[in-house]
């Protein structure tokens, strides 16, 4: 199992860097080309969510990403230290339902729609989002 770890300050500008690193490692790990856009978007969503949460609660704390190949899977875990509220929402039906609080949780809905396998662990001490995709090579 090979692991790459990345930590970054809670700045929106760093989210793009995190996306690019995750996509590069996913490609190297053997994730199919057709899935790389999904990896890029899902990791970006998880990092954006973490950045917004840190900026609200603990702007000085870094966000951590772990990327690993594990038994034929490419696995990404994004961890933050901001206290988490419940994040499940129903699908939107009309514009009136799209409140600001709803929109702030859109990221999780997007990740769940994109990643092959997703687990979200919210807690008062922070949230871990673990997601994975099939991969064919060792990194």
């Amino acid at each position: 199992m090979a692991t790459v770890e990345l930590t970054f300050s809670a700045l929106p500008a760093h989210v793009r860097t995190a996306r690019l690193v995750a996509t590069a490692i996913a490609r190297r790990t053997g994730v199919e080309e057709s899935l790389l856009d999904e990896v890029r978007l899902a990791v970006g969503e998880a990092c954006s969510r973490a950045v917004e949460a840190h900026r609200a609660h603990c702007p000085g704390e870094p966000i951590r990403i772990e990327l690993r190949d594990d038994s034929g899977r490419f696995e990404v875990t994004v961890s933050d230290h901001a206290p988490s509220d419940e994040i499940k929402q129903e699908q939107p039906l009309d514009l009136g339902m799209l409140s600001d609080s709803f929109m702030s949780n859109f990221g999780i809905a997007v990740i769940e729609g994109l990643a092959d396998d997703v687990e979200v662990f919210p807690s008062p001490k922070g949230t871990n989002i673990r997601m994975s995709w099939p991969a064919t090579n060792g990194a």
Binding site: L41, E45, S104, F106, G107, V110
Partner: peptide, 16 residues
């Protein structure tokens, strides 16, 4: 090239 939920939120805000 790339659109995430933050961008969706901006478009929804514009629509409102």
């Amino acid at each position: 090239d790339f659109l995430d939920s933050t961008g969706l939120g901006v478009l929804v805000g514009g629509l409102k």
